[in-house]
Design a protein around this nucleic acid. Structure first.
Lengths: 187, 187
DNA sequence: AATACCATCTTGTCAATGGCAAGATAAGAT
DNA sequence: ATCTTATCTTGCCATTGACAAGATGGTATT
């Protein structure tokens, strides 16, 4: 697969990020070990430091990747808020490792300009979808409040799903379950 | 304060849990160190093991404590769903350390019977409050769906608040902001 | 082509941590 | 008074994150 033969790996940065996604998927971000990533990539224990500085540096890169992925996912989901909400939940489930890091700012450098930029891009996508919401019956729909409510409900559902906190009744299809929950807000 | 003079601490278990709440409040659950807790309590580095076995054991005890606290908080908030929702968010902010552990099952033994029992008690409180929801206009309000939507929105808002992910616009009063968000669902 | 330069990766080391084992101390039970 | 048990300590080991110093190989300059 990877043409890694020589002294130089060739694409170690990407390999380490991929390994991190795999490792976090297995044991969560708290149990992540740089030395384990190095072993998975077949390099020495100090190789990751060169590319990311320290563990927070690696997770910062992962967070940037995650926010970008989320922005693209929301863009591709189209203009409909329900569809965007389902896509948000689907992203959390399919890219669990990224999602779990993104919203745990104590694990990485959340003030990093790249993180801010990518995070703003994703946030903008979500806000744009909320703007299409019909004003609620009787009241003037405050877009800020609506966006916050929409973000909260999809983020909460995704988080509870990932935490395994939901009762079995909810089923095993996150998209289907998310549709039901979100439609309670936007119907 | 604590009569700890002798060889035996007297109430080490409680002291360690208190220290854990303090430490997690400072640096999050991932950075928690048993040895640091031992230092804070003024005992040797191996003392915690006797009471909790290992780190997961200590966090399991903390999760039980947290779910019980949450159940009491919801009970005291009264029957109104809006009030219960605000209380949920308020709990997350005021008992941040407990909350952060409770919904991170990979950190502790989530299948522990004591955890299950306490978690069920808290969940029951929330469901009882949702049962009082008026059926939504036109459709038959499915209580399961309503409960899931209500839980999702308050949990999501609380999580985003704690993560510092919300824009400054939202203000600095979580109860006030939560009231606005939740009323978008229950109005 | 020879040299200098620099990014990449390795080896070696240190302090801190989690966990285990064995022992010391105190408190209560018989 | 002795036995038993719970509680806490000391000592130890493997693992980890971080740092320092060195090895390797590609790239630019002349």
């Amino acid at each position: 697969m990877t043409p890694t033969r020589g002294y130089h790996h060739g694409d170690l940065r990407r390999a380490l990020l991929d390994a991190a996604v795999e490792a976090i998927g297995e044991s969560g971000p708290a149990a992540l070990s740089l030395r384990d990533l190095a072993r998975r990539a077949g390099v020495s224990h100090a190789a990751p430091a060169h590319h990311f500085g320290d563990k927070a540096g690696l997770l910062t890169a992962l967070a940037v990747q995650g926010f970008d992925l989320l922005a693209w996912t929301l863009r591709d989901a189209g203009d409909d808020l329900l569809a965007a909400g389902v896509a948000y939940v689907d992203f959390a489930v399919r890219h669990r490792a990224h999602f779990e890091v993104m919203f745990r700012p104590e694990l990485y450098r959340a003030h990093d300009p790249e993180v801010r930029a990518a995070s703003d891009r994703a946030g903008g996508m979500l806000r744009d979808r909320v703007a299409g919401l019909p004003a609620r019956d009787g009241g003037a729909g405050d877009p800020g409040r609506d966006a916050l409510a929409a973000w909260s409900i999809v983020h909460g559902f995704a988080t509870l799903w990932l935490a395994g906190a939901l009762p079995p009744r909810v089923g095993d299809d996150p998209r289907e379950a998310a549709r039901h929950v979100i439609s309670r807000l936007v119907e």
